[in-house]
Nucleic acid binder design. Structure first.
Length: 274
DNA sequence: CAGGTAGCCTGTTAGC
DNA sequence: TGCTAACAGGCTACCT
């Protein structure tokens, strides 16, 4: 569920609430979400640390803690990280709670239990990213058009699975891959080797535009996604093709088709995209 | 190496 | 209406 714009919105909504706040303690109800270190060590290391910064890389939300610790949180499909008053009833899928020094709670809830947390030293982040094969963030200013064209253009295979490959560009998921390809007028199954330099440039521009607009609209809520305050996004009404099989293409009016690309649903206007 | 599938889970929806 | 199968925004491991 949460792709780059959603994780960014979680970050911006949580920031004023938890920046500078101390974590008094942690309660873990589902240990398997903690990937490193072990659950006991995780709890002991987190306790009494202040949250000194928030960052994002691709779909990872990074909480910087004092004494140079860093907590990398991945929400996967249905994970939610919500700041909440402690007297509010908990969601039934609450797997972990941070007890904060202001008396509130930061809750991790995840219906499908796919989300993960990794606690590490700040200095281990680069190693973590390289182990995970995490490429440059899709909105990173350092990811120039030329660099993008080089990273994507040098590969083989269909374009859409490559857009979803976090090691090439980090942050794009299925929704935005479909939207980006529609905006760039490129069919998801086009072999990358057949894309012209002009098409790759269009793809880069579409990627930056779609993701930026989605961030401005606080992300897409099709079902489960909520931000750090528990509120849904509002980009879903602006989706051109994703989830719109049978509806008219906003550009040409032809019915939007649905197909499978690399095992994932693609939504395509076969007149506009080729 | 490209491409496909199963698996991790729970919940919702499409179709019979 | 009631049941079952397919599917859902991610990612990894493993297979061909």
């Amino acid at each position: 569920m949460p792709e780059l714009p959603e994780v960014q919105t979680v970050l911006t909504t949580l920031k004023p609430r938890i920046l500078g706040v101390r974590i008094e303690g942690v309660e873990v109800f589902l240990e398997k979400i903690i990937k490193s270190p072990g659950p006991k060590e995780f709890v002991a290391l987190i306790k009494e640390r202040s949250i000194t910064g928030l960052a994002r890389r691709g779909k990872y939300l990074l909480l910087e803690l004092d004494a140079s610790y860093l907590l990398a949180i991945h929400l996967r499909m249905t994970g939610q990280l919500v700041y909440s008053r402690s007297d509010k009833p908990r969601d039934r899928h609450t797997h972990l709670v941070f007890y904060l020094s202001d008396g509130a709670e930061l809750r991790f809830q995840d219906m499908r239990q796919f989300g993960t947390m990794n606690l590490m030293l700040l200095g281990q982040l680069d190693l973590f990213c390289s182990q995970k094969g995490l490429g440059p963030d899709a909105l990173d200013p350092a990811l120039t058009r030329e660099l993008f064209k080089q990273r994507i253009g040098d590969r083989r295979g269909q374009i859409k699975p490559l857009l979803l490959d976090q090691s090439l560009v980090a942050g794009i998921g299925n929704i935005y891959a479909n939207e980006i390809l529609w905006r760039a007028r490129i069919h998801p199954e086009r072999p990358v080797s057949s894309l012209t330099p002009g098409e790759l440039a269009k793809l880069y521009q579409a990627m930056r535009q779609v993701l930026t607009e989605a961030v401005e609209h606080r992300g897409t809520t099709l079902r489960d996604y909520v931000d750090g305050d528990g509120n849904p996004g509002d980009f879903q009404s602006l989706l051109a093709v994703h989830g719109r099989e049978g509806e008219p293409c906003p550009q040409c009016g032809q019915k939007i088709a649905r197909m499978k690309t690399g095992g994932r649903s693609s939504f395509v206007c076969t007149r506009c995209q080729e």
